[in-house]
Design a binder for these strands. Sequence first.
DNA 1: TCTTTCTGCAACCGCTCGGTTGCAGGAGGG
DNA 2: CCCTCCTGCAACCGAGCGGTTGCAGAAAGA
Lengths: 103, 103
Amino acid sequence: MSQVDDVLAALADPMRRRVLDLVAAKGPVSASALATELPVSRQAIVKHLSVLEKAELVASERAGRENNFSVRSGALDATATWMASLASQWDRRLAAIKKIAEA
Amino acid sequence: MSQVDDVLAALADPMRRRVLDLVAAKGPVSASALATELPVSRQAIVKHLSVLEKAELVASERAGRENNFSVRSGALDATATWMASLASQWDRRLAAIKKIAEA
DNA sequence: TCTTTCTGCAACCGCTCGGTTGCAGGAGGG
DNA sequence: CCCTCCTGCAACCGAGCGGTTGCAGAAAGA
């Protein structure tokens, strides 16, 4: 469940979502390359990437002197599933309450 | 899209998720009632509820001198859908890249 | 080898955020 | 009418976070 926790915390920040979108669009890409297309410093992006990596939304692979990041959909998918099941859980409970109220 | 933004920001905080769970479990309930079952002050819970209400995860209904909150699943469902579609989008892109690499 | 460039680490700063406390106001019950 | 209880507003505080800057180190190219 801390998996879901990390994903939600990671996605909460708009700049982090922009970074994530860029990584998804550009494929394997380095932090420095991302920095050229975003209005923040490289270090800021490095921090964002480390958060995203901890949430397993992104994975890094070293190639020589540069570190390339790619997107991983597993954690995102798991979180989406968790949210959907939570929503349906609420709906079921609401339906049950309504049924009791009608009886 | 700011709907999704608000939902993610709201769910990012663990205490806020606890509040949300309690509201879902207890049905229509006041902030003061929630405060008796959580290790924080009433005011803290009021703030959390206002954030949840802005994200449309919760709705309030006044009954005399007390304000009762209930859960709303719409925004949560929408966000789950958004996340799932984002994940499948990534998968399609990765599949496309892989196909190019194999060609 | 020397230079370039990409990375990683650490310190620092301002602001937002979660939380508390105190107080004023309004609705109900005796 | 008076007292009680629940609410809402505002000020305040500490911690965490997003962001920057500076510097040291390692890998590739000339």
